[in-house]
């Protein structure tokens, strides 16, 4: 039977919880207007995840580049020679050639799967469908991961995401460097990504435009900008729009006093007999 719906009604957390508790085997596909993702499970364990449509092509060179195990040039060379080869075959060749270790591959694939799934926790909308027993391409490298820890970490990140969204609700505002940076700036160490963002800080660029130029997700740009704001490195050109006020759920009405038990055992037995005979 189908297991389909929209993330509007069921969060990623709830879906993963269901798959974990019911020890399901199959593939969960999620499709939004602009993105798609696939997650595969075996007996309730996450074994594979991929952002985008699964076109059956290999992904290992890209995954190893993202994890820093291969340089962009190395990944490009491998990719150009890997036409028609599966991830498992490429992995075997790379280990044999001592470009990477088996552990490098396992850790990189595992991290890629987790990064993909954690991103899905922030998706508030998207059509999902679970196809029981549909497994990923046999050439992919699958690693079983317990869902409990994924759900816990995903929920933690979701909370962080909500806080960031509250602190930085409007991405259409521009940033500028503070006129009088304070003493805190002396101890700042910027990461490569932060430097990339810093290079785009300009009253003409909105935060959203900076994110787009650097290929950063809403979550990533919010985290970086929030850090820079806290450090006193940048400030808003105009004050951002405040976060929309959270509507409080209507207070639960007080339960009326429990009705006195009207039915006796004999009444219930008679009802059972009557309904059986309908």
């Amino acid at each position: 039977m189908a297991l389909k719906g929209n993330l509007r009604d069921f969060s990623t957390t709830q879906l993963l919880n269901l798959i974990n508790l019911a020890r399901k085997t199959g593939t969960l596909s999620i499709q939004t207007e602009s993105e798609s993702a696939q997650m595969s499970f075996r007996e309730g364990k996450l074994i594979y995840a991929y952002m985008g449509n699964d076109n059956g092509k290999n992904h290992l060179a890209q995954i190893l580049q993202t994890s820093g195990k291969l340089s962009p040039e190395q990944a490009q060379v491998i990719q150009s020679h890997a036409e028609g080869k599966s991830d498992k075959e490429i992995g075997h060749l790379l280990v044999t050639a001592r470009r990477v270790t088996q552990n490098d591959i396992i850790q990189s694939v595992r991290q890629n799967v987790l990064d993909t799934v954690y991103k899905l926790f922030t998706w508030g909308e998207g059509v999902f469908r679970f196809d029981a027993n549909r497994m990923p391409n046999s050439g992919y490298i699958t690693i079983p991961i317990d869902l409990e820890s994924v759900i816990m970490e995903g929920s933690r990140r979701l909370k962080e995401w909500e806080i960031l969204q509250e602190e930085l609700p409007d991405l259409d505002v521009a940033l500028r460097f503070t006129d009088r940076p304070d003493a805190r700036l002396r101890n700042i160490n910027l990461t490569v990504e932060e430097w990339r963002v810093v290079s785009f800080v300009n009253p003409r660029n909105s935060i959203r435009q900076i994110a787009k130029a650097n290929n950063l997700s809403d979550f990533e740009i919010r985290r970086i900008v929030y850090g820079m704001l806290q450090a006193g490195l940048v400030e808003f050109v105009n004050q951002p729009k405040p976060a929309p006020e959270k509507t409080e759920s209507p207070a639960r009405r007080k339960a009326p006093p429990e009705p006195s038990p009207a039915a006796k055992r004999s009444v219930v037995v008679r009802l059972i007999d009557r309904i059986r005979g309908l």
Binding site: A263, R265, V268, V269, L271, I272, I275, R276
Partner: peptide
């Protein structure tokens, strides 16, 4: 489906009976 509805009502009555017992 009448049988399906009967089954639901009967299961509820069995639960009520269990609670009374």
């Amino acid at each position: 489906d009448k049988e399906s509805v009967k089954n639901a009502l009967l299961e509820l009555l069995y639960s009520i009976l269990d609670q009374l017992d």
